[in-house]
Structure formats: structure tokens, C-alpha cells
Design a protein around this nucleic acid. Structure first.
Length: 569
RNA sequence: UGGGGGAUGGUCUAAUGGUAAGACAGCGGACUCUGACUCCGCUUAUCGAGGUUCGAGCCCUCGUCCCCCAGCCA
């Protein structure tokens, strides 16, 4: 990667996980670190996954050490290869590369099975015939110990035989499971003889119908880590209780490698929901247009919205890694996008809500090309020309018939600068006689101020953007806003989170007028529409020569806070 | 009334017994051919009570509050 994500990560103090790894490297406990990102292919990746990806792959990059991509595909009833492909695409897009280290838990099904046999032979696993409901009642509660299964002490040979027959498909789904034989009295529920294999007569997206028994997460994950030589197995806080079990399996099986599991807090963002289940509801309920709807904080949604991968990485390093449950303000994410795009996005002019301007003293039919900077702070990005003529459009918000205090823009008898153009002064207003709506304004221009200069030193307070009426192109622009109105749509358990959906999270504008250079914008290109925000061409709906734009994020706007007249666009 | 975790400004994160720091947000100002960017300034924090220590956010004790766990999901 070419950005400075890693450099800034190095400049800041190490988080507690990186400290542990640094110490393990320093002490010689490990020669190198090996981390992994272990998604289950049952959905699309979202910004929460990005935190884990940036952590695991980031550590790999910083230490010049491997980070594996491993699909935790042990539940074929929920998993699909389409998800595998989208996850790979998203991890790559985020800027990370697993190289040759692409793995699947399903690669280990044979070895996992052998380990299970070993566990049985050790007397540490047994086939249990309790139904799911019975098992639940035998498990006990948070405050009462569980009860041992009547099948717990069956002879070793019988377990071996039964387990083999489970594998061979002799038994019905749900009729038997293989359980670890640990401690039904443990205060940690995970240790009360957890299920390690269940019968699932479902085809697997990679192993087909080779198996009808599938291993459970707790059993699979630690062994997969050990088989891959993972040194530090990073996961979220809710797995803290599972660590004793993680260690138990590896200790009992005496694996050569015993990774250290370390837990960190998952990401919570204000004004959104993060759980796969809720994201799915939004998609399936038609509240958004698919997983990659630009309002979604899925990786594909963010990509389509115009968030650069580098901005997402910056965000992930900004928020840090800790163990306390935290809520990151959405503005932190938005700011990461602004920061990034401010450096890279070329500036253009686009009028979202047009108001016609006629320059009375400009010759009809005449047109001139004016030079405009592509990025005022970065001259190396060059310049372009924009056509100027007698009829223009400006932003409706940039004219007020009765301007409030501190309004720097156009009003009757006021003068403003047209960006890279001329100073203009408003001389009259045309209104619709029935509705009273302003339909056009008449102005005069000062030919001496061409290009926006002011040879007589005259000051204007406002500079506004514009497009030439005969030259402007019309493109659909979608203005996106936060999906939810509530900081935490989930907070009140009595109220469905969908009640907090922002009805104005998408505004489709179809009479936007853009400077003609935008006609050749490529899909995925990013721009700053000056004074409006950052926009990108939609990856899916744009056609060659007919781009569709998405607003990624607004520019900060301190005028909105100043303007107390309640007037909004 | 079990077990496992966590509490530092509004929000995140740092300080690893020695001046509580940075980012985001907010407020004020400067600059400005983007009310953007940039720059400057400001407000605001160690959950509580004890203890150890010359010195405690950090160590000890006792509390308080919050989160997670009773899937044949991961």
C-alpha cells in the first residue's frame, strides 16, 4: 500500500494486542507473528469486519509476517460460495493480501475427525443421545450446575462405533451428537460438555455430500489455528468465555502449536446497526436496495458510496483497539472520508438545485472558456476549462431575496464572485406570477473581473459555483444521508430499530446540472463538487457518457450553524 | 443469587508509580476565488471510599455501575 496508514500506526503508541505481540517477538517466544482473519461465509463483510481485518492484516504488514484468510465454514446450512467470493473481493479491495495463505476450516475436516477419534480414545468425548431440549435442561442454568448425561460414561468402543456410524449417515439429524467430556458442574457454561459434532444432512459448498457430520466452532477454530501455526488468535469480547475451552481442546490433544487467543471490543457506530441479522432485515424487507446499497455500512456499500479503502483503513487505526465496549461517533468515519478525499479528489462545479441567472450585459450567443484549478492546494493536478455564457445556473440556496445577516451570497443589489468567472451583481428577480416562486434572476457582470480577479481591489465576501446553461449536462445525483435518525436505533428493546429509519436517507435529484467535463467521468471516479461535498460516479448505474453520481459525504458547513432563519434547501 | 470482562473530557484512544496527552465533536478567532482546507486559541476527564507511597489513572482493600454467557450458530 502506498498511503501512510502504516506509518501513522507506527507513530502512535501500540495497542495492547500489538504490545503483547511485540513482547513475544522480543522475548523470542515467537520468531514471527502469524495472525488470521476468520470470516464465516454466511453474509457480506461490513465496517465492523474491517476493524478486525485491519487489525490482523495490519499486524502482518507491520511485522512483515503472514496473515491468513480462513473461512470458518462449518455450518453448511447457512453458508454459500457466493459469500466466499464477495469476502475475498472485499478484503482485497480494502488493500490486503493473504498471498498463498487462503484456507478453509473445511480443508481440515479429515484431521478434525481424526482428532475427535483421539478425544474419544482419551476418554474425553462421547456420543450423546439426549435431544436438544433434554440437553438444554441437563445443562443447568447460570447459577445451578448441570446434570451429567446418561450417555456420558459409555464404553470407549461403543463411542468409537457410534461416532463412525454417525459419520456414515446411519442416524437421523438431531438424534446424536459428539460431546466433549469436561465438567457439567463448571461455572463456565461452555465447559459443560459442549457439543463438538452434530449431524447435518446438508451439502457443503466445498465438500459436497462427503460429510453428514460437521464440527462446531469451538472445536474447529482452535484446531484450525493450531494447524496453521497461528501465534495470536484475535477475536471479539464475546469469545472471552470460550477461551478456557479453546485451551482445553489444544491441551487435551497436545497439539504442537498452541496459539494465544486475545479478545478485543467489537466496533459499534452511532446512527447505524451492525449485526448481520439486522442488516439482513433491512435488505430483505426492502428498506434498502441490497447489500451494496450506498447507505449500508457493508464494505460493498461503502465502496459504492465512494469511501476510499484508505479512508476506511485510516478510520480503523483512528479508533484504536481496546477491551471496553465503545460507541464510535459516525462523524469519525465521515471525517476519515473527508480527510482522504480532500487530498485526492479533483474539484468540479455542479449545481444540485438550479436557479437560472441571466447576465444582461453579456452578449447573447457568446461563449468563452475559463480556466479552473482541479485542486487549488495541489497545482500539479492541473486545470481544465469551463464554458461561460449569458445564461447560467447557480445553486438556489445561493440566492436570497431577503438575505439574513452574515449571508455572503447573492441577493438583490448584491455582488458575488462566480468561481473562476466574473463578479456579478443581481439587478432583478423574476417570479412565477401564480406561485410566487423565483424562476430566474437578472444580473450584470463586470468584464474587468474575468477569472475571478479584482483589478480595482474591490472585495466580495462570497464566491459561488455555477454552470453555463447551454453547456451543462444533466445527470442523476443521489444525495445520501445517515440511514437512521437515532444515535442507537437498538437502544430501546420495546421499539423496533426500523422505526428509527431516516425517511430522507436517500434523495434522488434529477435536475442537477453539472459542468460538461463530467460527461466523461469513469465509474467509481471521485470528485469534490465544490461547496457541496464529495461525490463519486455510481459503480453500477453509470453508463459510459451518462454517469450517475452518489454523494459520499458533505463538506463541513459552518454556515448551516450560523443560519438561524430556518431556511433549508 | 454462578462465571467471565470493563469503567480516563460529549465520543474514542494514550499515559505501563513521576507535568493526565492525541483524535473526533463543540465553541471562538485568523486566513480564504470552496462559509471547504489550513492555522491559532478555548471549554470539558481518571466511577466511589479507604489504604500503600515522597508521589497513584496505574499497586492493595471494599463498594458502585455497565457488558457478555444457559445454539446441535459463529
Amino acid at each position: 500500500m502506498t498511503d501512510n496508514t502504516e506509518i501513522s500506526a507506527e507513530a502512535r503508541p501500540l495497542d495492547f494486542i500489538r504490545q503483547i505481540i511485540a513482547e513475544d517477538l522480543r522475548s523470542g517466544k515467537h520468531q514471527q507473528s502469524v495472525t488470521r482473519f476468520p470470516p464465516e461465509p454466511n453474509g457480506f463483510l461490513h465496517i465492523g469486519h474491517a476493524k478486525s481485518i485491519c487489525l490482523n492484516f495490519g499486524i502482518g504488514l507491520e511485522n512483515n509476517s503472514p496473515c491468513h484468510l480462513r473461512f470458518d465454514d462449518t455450518n453448511p446450512s447457512k453458508e454459500e460460495s457466493a459469500y466466499v467470493e464477495s469476502i475475498k473481493k472485499d478484503v482485497h479491495w480494502l488493500g490486503f493480501d493473504w498471498g498463498r495463505n487462503l484456507f478453509y476450516a473445511s480443508d481440515y475436516f479429515d484431521r478434525l475427525y481424526d482428532y475427535a477419534i483421539q478425544l474419544i480414545k482419551l476418554g474425553r468425548a462421547y456420543v450423546c443421545e439426549l435431544s436438544a431440549e433434554e440437553m438444554r435442561s441437563y445443562r443447568g442454568t447460570l447459577t445451578e450446575a448441570g446434570k451429567e448425561s446418561p450417555y456420558r460414561d459409555r464404553p470407549l468402543e461403543e463411542n468409537l462405533d457410534l461416532f463412525k456410524r454417525m459419520k456414515e449417515g446411519e442416524f437421523a439429524e438431531g438424534s446424536r451428537v459428539l460431546r466433549a467430556r469436561i465438567d457439567m458442574g463448571s461455572p463456565n457454561l461452555n465447559m459443560r460438555d459442549p457439543v463438538i459434532y452434530r449431524i447435518l444432512k446438508v451439502a457443503h459448498h466445498r465438500t459436497g455430500d462427503a460429510w453428514c457430520i460437521y464440527p462446531m466452532y469451538d472445536y474447529t477454530h482452535c484446531i484450525s489455528d493450531a494447524l496453521e501455526g497461528i501465534t495470536h488468535s484475535l477475536c471479539t469480547l464475546e469469545f472471552e468465555d470460550h477461551r478456557p475451552l479453546y485451551d482445553w481442546f489444544l491441551d487435551t490433544l497436545q497439539t504442537a502449536c498452541h496459539p494465544r487467543q486475545i479478545e478485543f471490543a467489537r466496533l459499534n457506530l452511532t446512527y447505524t446497526v451492525m449485526s448481520k441479522r439486522k442488516i439482513l432485515q433491512l435488505v430483505q424487507g426492502g428498506y434498502v436496495n441490497g447489500w451494496d446499497d450506498p447507505r449500508m455500512l457493508t464494505i460493498s456499500g461503502l465502496r459504492r458510496r465512494g469511501y476510499p479503502a484508505s479512508a476506511i483503513r485510516k478510520f480503523c487505526t483512528d479508533i484504536g483497539i481496546g477491551k471496553k465496549e465503545s460507541w464510535i461517533d459516525m462523524s469519525v468515519l465521515e471525517n476519515a472520508a473527508r480527510d482522504d478525499l480532500n487530498e485526492t479528489a479533483p474539484r468540479v462545479m455542479a449545481v444540485l438545485n438550479p436557479l437560472k441567472v441571466i447576465i444582461d450585459n453579456y452578449p447573447p450567443g457568446e461563449c468563452e472558456e475559463l480556466e479552473a484549478q482541479n485542486h487549488p492546494q495541489r497545482p500539479e493536478m492541473g486545470s481544465r476549462t469551463v464554458p461561460f455564457s449569458r445564461e447560467l445556473y447557480i445553486e438556489r440556496d445561493d440566492f436570497r431575496e431577503d438575505p439574513p445577516k452574515k449571508f455572503f451570497r447573492l441577493g438583490p443589489e448584491r455582488e458575488v464572485r462566480l468561481r473562476y468567472g466574473y463578479f456579478i451583481r443581481c439587478v432583478s428577480v423574476v417570479k412565477d406570477t401564480t406561485t410566487g416562486e423565483i424562476t430566474a434572476i437578472h444580473c450584470t457582470y463586470d468584464p474587468e473581473t474575468k477569472g475571478g480577479g479584482s483589478p480595482d481591489g474591490r472585495k466580495v465576501k462570497g464566491t459561488i459555483h455555477w454552470v453555463s446553461a447551454p453547456h451543462a449536462i444533466s445527470c442523476p445525483v443521489r444525495v445520501y444521508d445517515r440511514l437512521f435518525l437515532s444515535e442507537n436505533p437498538d437502544a430501546d428493546k420495546e421499539v423496533d430499530f426500523k422505526e428509527h429509519l431516516n425517511p430522507n436517507s436517500l434523495t434522488s435529484l434529477d435536475c442537477c446540472l453539472l459542468e460538461p467535463s463530467l460527461a466523461k467521468a469513469q465509474a467509481g471516479e471521485q470528485f469534490q463538487f465544490e461547496r457541496n461535498g464529495y461525490f463519486c460516479t455510481d459503480l453500477i448505474d453509470s453508463q459510459p457518457g451518462a454517469p450517475v453520481f452518489n454523494r459520499t459525504v458533505t463538506l463541513k458547513d459552518s454556515w448551516i450553524k450560523t443560519d438561524t432563519t430556518g431556511y433549508t434547501s
